[in-house]
Design a protein around this nucleic acid. Structure first.
Length: 415
RNA sequence: GCCAGGGUAGGGUAGCUGGUCAUCCUAGGGGACUGUGGAUCCCCCGACCCGGGUUCGAGUCUCGGCCCUGGCCCCA
C-alpha cells in the first residue's frame, strides 16, 4: 500500500475543524491589529533562502531543479518570501505595511514531537517602521494571537545590543561559538571556550547579563549603550499594555539579520521542540534588491500550538438530517435547498433504506430530522422532529426552516 | 546523520519459552424491523509493515529496509 511521505500528516475532518477554529481565532487577532493577509508561492528560487541564511541550509531544504534548469526549493520559512514580495510588489505602498500569513513550509529534518517535514506557520511582518512602538506592537500581536488560540506559554523579550556590546572584540567565529553556547545555557562549555580564546574575563559579565531580569541589572553589566533609551521605552509600552513577560538578554535567535529587539515564547508539554514563537526586529529587504528597510515580525509554529492545546472544542453548529421515501425524494431535495439557503447544515439521507434505518442514522448525527414520505409530499408539508426532545410536528417548509434555525413559529401544528 | 522503544483488521489491543480456528473491544456492513431513535440480539467484513535468513514449521528467533513515537544534532 502507498504511504504518505515521511514527516507529513493527513488531517481528517475532526482535526481540520479544530485547526480551522484555532486558525480563525489567530487571523481575527491579526485583523484587529490592522494586519492583512498575504500569500506567497509554495516554492521559490533557492537563492532567496541561501541569501538570508547561508548555503549550509540547502541540506535541510526540499531543493530541486525544475525542467528549465532553475534552482528552486519548497519554502522552509515565510519571512524571506514575504520580504521578497515586499521588494517585488509593494515598495511604494504607504508605510508601515502590516501583513500576516498562515501557510505551510517544508524542511527536510528528522521528524519528532511538534516537528514535521510539512508544517504550518502563522506569522506577521511590520515593514517600514523602526521604533519602540513597532517592537511593542509586534510582540503584543504575537501574544494576542497565542492567547486567542488559548495557549499557555512563557514569553521572553530581549535585545541583541547588550550581548553584542560584550562581544565586540571577538571575531565572527568566536562570537558565534560563544552565542551558541549561551543560547543553550551550557555554562561549563562556555567557560572552556572563553578560556581557549583567552577571554575568561568575559565569563562573569556574560553570566550576569544572561541572568539579568531588569534593565537596570542588564545595563549595569554592559554600561551605557545607545539602544538604552529605546529599550526603556519598549519596556514602558509593554508594561502599559499589561503584557505578561520576562526580560532575557541571553536570547540569541540564530542569525545576523536581527538588529535589536528579539523575543521567544515557550509552551509547556511540548517535549524537546517547545519553542512556539520567535521573532524580532530585522533588516532583510536590502538583501533582495530593495532599499534597506527596517522590519519587525514573528512566526508562530501553528502545529505546535495545536499540540499544546490538545483537544479543541469546536463550536457545535446545528445539523438537520433529511429523511425520505422514494415518493418524497424530490421534496427532500427542495427542503435541503431551503435549509441550506438559511445557512443551516442539511444532510440528505442517500442510503435508500427504510425510514427506520434512516432515523437510526439521523439520531446519531443530527439535531433535527426533516422527514418527507408520500403523505408529506402529497400534502406539501414536512414532518419536523426534534431529536433531543422527541417532539414531532407537521409543518410547512418555511416553518421547519425557522424551527431548525431556532426561531419561533407562529402557529405550529402537531402530530 | 546518531540513539532508544515500537509496528498484529479502519481505530485500540491479546498472543511473542517457535507448532490448535490469531484474542477481545470498537468502528463499518447486513438482519430481527418496507413510515420513525441512540438500546438489545444475531450474522458478516476485516490484520501479523516489507524482504532475506535459521527451522520440518516464523506473528513469535535473527539480519536488513521502511515507517511510527520520543530524544540527540540542527533549528532559518
Amino acid at each position: 500500500m502507498l504511504q504518505r511521505p515521511r514527516g507529513t500528516r493527513d488531517f481528517l475532518p475532526d482535526e481540520m475543524e479544530a485547526r480551522a477554529e484555532i486558525e480563525g481565532r489567530m487571523r481575527e487577532a491579526a485583523r484587529r491589529f490592522g494586519y492583512r493577509p498575504v500569500r506567497t508561492p509554495a516554492f521559490e528560487e533557492l537563492e532567496l533562502f541561501t541569501l538570508r541564511s547561508g548555503p549550509g541550509i540547502v541540506n535541510e531544504m526540499y531543493a530541486f531543479e525544475d525542467k528549465g534548469g532553475r534552482a528552486l526549493t519548497l519554502r522552509p520559512e515565510l519571512t524571506a518570501p514575504v520580504l521578497r514580495l515586499y521588494v517585488n510588489e509593494a515598495r511604494v505602498l504607504p508605510k508601515p505595511l502590516r501583513w500576516y500569513y498562515v501557510d505551510d513550509c517544508f524542511r527536510y529534518e528528522r521528524p519528532q514531537k511538534g516537528r514535521y517535514r510539512q508544517f504550518w506557520q502563522f506569522g506577521a511582518e511590520l515593514i517600514g517602521v523602526d521604533s519602540a512602538g513597532a517592537d511593542a506592537e509586534v510582540i503584543l500581536l504575537a501574544d494576542a494571537a497565542l492567547r486567542a488560540a488559548g495557549v499557555q506559554y512563557e514569553l521572553k523579550v530581549g535585545h541583541l545590543a547588550l550581548l553584542r556590546s560584550l562581544l565586540v572584540d571577538l571575531d565572527e567565529t568566536a562570537r558565534r561559538t560563544v552565542m551558541g553556547l549561551l543560547d543553550k545555557r551550557e555554562m561549563n562549555a562556555l567557560r572552556d571556550a572563553l578560556t581557549d580564546l583567552g577571554r575568561a574575563d568575559l565569563l562573569g559579565s556574560l553570566v550576569a547579563l544572561v541572568g539579568a531580569t531588569t534593565l537596570d541589572e542588564a545595563f549595569a553589566v554592559t554600561g551605557p549603550l545607545p539602544e538604552e533609551a529605546r529599550l526603556r521605552e519598549l519596556v514602558a509600552l509593554l508594561e502599559a499594555a499589561g503584557l505578561e513577560y520576562s526580560l532575557n538578554f541571553g536570547i540569541v535567535r540564530g542569525l545576523d539579520y536581527y538588529t535589536g529587539m528579539v523575543f521567544e515564547g515557550f509552551a509547556a508539554n511540548l517535549g524537546a521542540e517547545n519553542q512556539i514563537v520567535g521573532g524580532g526586529a530585522y533588516r532583510l529587504a536590502h538583501l533582495f534588491g530593495g532599499e534597506d528597510t527596517p522590519s519587525c515580525g514573528f512566526a508562530i509554529g501553528f502545529d505546535r500550538v495545536m499540540v499544546a492545546l490538545g483537544e479543541v472544542a469546536v463550536p457545535h453548529r446545528t445539523v438537520v438530517a433529511i429523511l425520505s421515501t422514494p415518493e418524497g425524494a424530490a421534496s427532500a431535495f427542495r427542503a435541503a435547498a431551503a435549509l441550506r439557503a438559511a445557512g443551516l447544515r442539511a444532510e440528505l439521507d442517500l442510503s435508500g433504506k427504510g425510514l427506520g434505518a434512516q432515523m437510526t442514522k439521523a439520531a446519531k448525527t443530527a439535531d433535527f430530522a426533516v422527514l418527507i414520505g408520500a403523505r408529506e409530499a402529497e400534502a406539501g408539508v414536512v414532518a419536523f422532529k426534534n431529536l433531543s426532545t422527541g417532539l414531532q410536528e407537521t409543518l410547512c417548509l418555511e416553518d421547519a426552516v425557522a424551527r431548525a434555525a431556532g426561531r419561533e413559529v407562529d402557529a405550529p401544528g402537531s402530530r
